[in-house]
Design a protein around this nucleic acid. Structure first.
Lengths: 190, 190
DNA sequence: ATAAATACAGACAGGTCTGTCTACTTCCGG
DNA sequence: CCGGAAGTAGACAGACCTGTCTGTATTTAT
């Protein structure tokens, strides 16, 4: 299907195109601020395609969250791949420091979803909750590997620091991620 | 003006009633999820009154944020009134621990506004930014009073911990505020 | 009692939203 | 070539949204 640019690589299917576009717009402006007509116009796709691939807007929103979650997981895993387990907790905050400096950084997609969608049963909220569990499991694993005296409390603290780094960076600027990394370093060197 | 309940205390004026209602609904469900007709119906007020007292919805949203900000400031100030300056930083986190346990707790209104309204020039965003500055000034003052070696870094760290406590409590539950308080304690006892 | 201030009920306009649907087009493989 | 798969353009319905406006009702102060 050659649309506008003839290239050696076939353009993504319409589902991918819709999800890419929605993902970017939703993250940039918010899931409620962006209506489906906007997504359609910018993805250059037809309404029937959207409803064929995603049953409704809420499903598109959930797919956006799943996309963000999968992206973060693979980035984190790649970033820490060569880091010894005992050093991963602190090294994670290097990743955060990098992330908040990226040009399209606008805070935490999970925090945004929780703000915009108050119903905890919404599919996007369920996807967000699953990522919380994943993160908690990672922090617990890393706290143990780092030899923390109380891995449970340390994991909780690391989650708080992560959330705070992201939320505060969104509002005050990227230096807040360095503040968080510093605190994590103090905490983990005890 | 006796509307439905004859009482010794006159009912609030319609402006107050509208703002009370909007404040609660906006915090509970989000500023975009709640339309003005919902506010009107629950406040039992007329549309002309809303537009007389608040020029437009955006002004009502900004008034909601100002209300939340003023409420938080007065609570914090009252809570710390009898606390020696050197102990205020940590005592503040006791306030956070209490707040996240309140029945209507749903996270940080500032974080919600930042998520829902991407335009930094929006009056609600400006109100939120002013509160960030106030908070930073308080933390800096308290870090100095606590004798922190680096009050600037400590103030930044405390802001991160505050944001993290609130965001993580919203998503995981109130134990996260206790995690944050513990970290603040470690940090301030150095 | 009367006038002014305050608030009300609700129609209206125009736009936007989400989702449903039909007829048509394009591409690809047999 | 032909049929099926995938995608398109866009009309439509109904609901909801924000803001404008008019006439009416209620309360308060003189």
């Amino acid at each position: 299907m050659s649309r506008h640019k003839p290239s050696a690589v076939p353009p993504p299917g319409v589902r991918e195109r819709l999800l890419d576009t929605a993902d970017q717009l939703f993250y940039k402006e918010g899931v409620r601020a962006v209506g489906i007509d906007r997504v359609l116009a910018e993805a250059d796709a037809a309404k029937a395609s959207l409803y064929l691939h995603f049953g409704c807007k809420d499903e598109l929103i959930a797919a956006h969250v799943e996309r963000r979650v999968a992206g973060a997981r693979s980035q984190i895993e790649a970033y820490l791949h060569d880091t010894p387990p005992g050093e991963r907790a602190l090294r994670f905050f290097d990743w955060v420091v990098d992330w908040v400096k990226s040009p399209d950084f606008r805070g935490c997609p999970l925090q945004h979803i929780v703000a915009e969608i108050s119903d905890p049963k919404h599919p996007a909220r369920l996807a967000a909750a699953r990522q919380r569990e994943w993160l908690h499991a990672r922090f617990l694993e890393w706290a143990r590997a780092a030899g923390a005296a109380d891995p449970g409390a340390t994991a909780g603290a690391l989650l708080v620091l992560f959330d705070g780094a992201v939320a505060a960076s969104e509002q005050d600027g990227p230096q807040r991620a360095r503040n968080a990394r510093w605190v994590a370093g103090q905490l983990l060197s005890r």
